Amino acid sequence: MASLQIIGQPPKVIHTYQVIRIGSDENDKTLTYCIEDKSVDKLHATLTRYEKGLYLVNESRHGSVTLNGRKVGGPVHITYRDTYHGCCRLHFGHVEALLLVSGSLNG
Score class of each variant (00 low, 15 high):
Met1Asn: 09
Ser3Leu: 09
Leu4Cys: 04
Gln5Glu: 14
Ile6Ser: 00
Ile7His: 04
Ile7Leu: 07
Gly8Phe: 04
Gly8Trp: 00
Gly8Glu: 07
Gln9Asp: 07
Lys12Cys: 07
Lys12Thr: 08
Lys12Pro: 06
Val13Leu: 10
Val13Thr: 08
Ile14Ser: 03
His15Asn: 14
Thr16Lys: 14
Arg21Glu: 05
Arg21Ala: 04
Ile22Met: 01
Ile22Lys: 00
Gly23Lys: 00
Glu26Gln: 13
Glu26Cys: 10
Asn27Val: 02
Lys29His: 13
Lys29Pro: 05
Leu31Asn: 12
Thr32Ile: 06
Thr32Gln: 05
Tyr33Cys: 04
Cys34Trp: 06
Ile35Lys: 00
Ile35Met: 03
Asp37Val: 01
Lys38Arg: 11
Ser39Val: 05
Lys42Tyr: 05
Leu43Asn: 13
Leu43Val: 15
Leu43Glu: 15
His44Ile: 00
Ala45Ile: 02
Leu47Asn: 09
Thr48Asp: 08
Arg49Ala: 13
Tyr50Gln: 11
Tyr50Asn: 11
Lys52Ser: 07
Gly53Ser: 14
Gly53Val: 13
Leu54Asp: 01
Tyr55Thr: 12
Leu56Val: 12
Val57Phe: 10
Asn58Leu: 03
Glu59Asp: 15
Glu59Ile: 01
Ser60Cys: 08
Arg61Tyr: 07
Arg61Gln: 13
His62Gln: 10
Gly63Leu: 01
Ser64Arg: 10
Val65Asp: 01
Val65Ala: 07
Val65Glu: 02
Gly69Thr: 11
Gly69Phe: 04
Arg70His: 12
Gly73Asn: 15
Gly74Asn: 12
Gly74Arg: 08
His77Pro: 05
Arg81His: 12
Thr83Met: 08
His85Gln: 15
Gly86Thr: 11
Cys88Gln: 04
Arg89Ala: 10
Leu90Glu: 01
Phe92Pro: 03
His94Glu: 15
Glu96Tyr: 08
Ala97Gly: 05
Ala97Met: 00
Leu99Gln: 06
Val101His: 05
Val101Asp: 02
Ser104Val: 14
Ser104Ala: 12
Asn106Glu: 08
Asn106Pro: 07
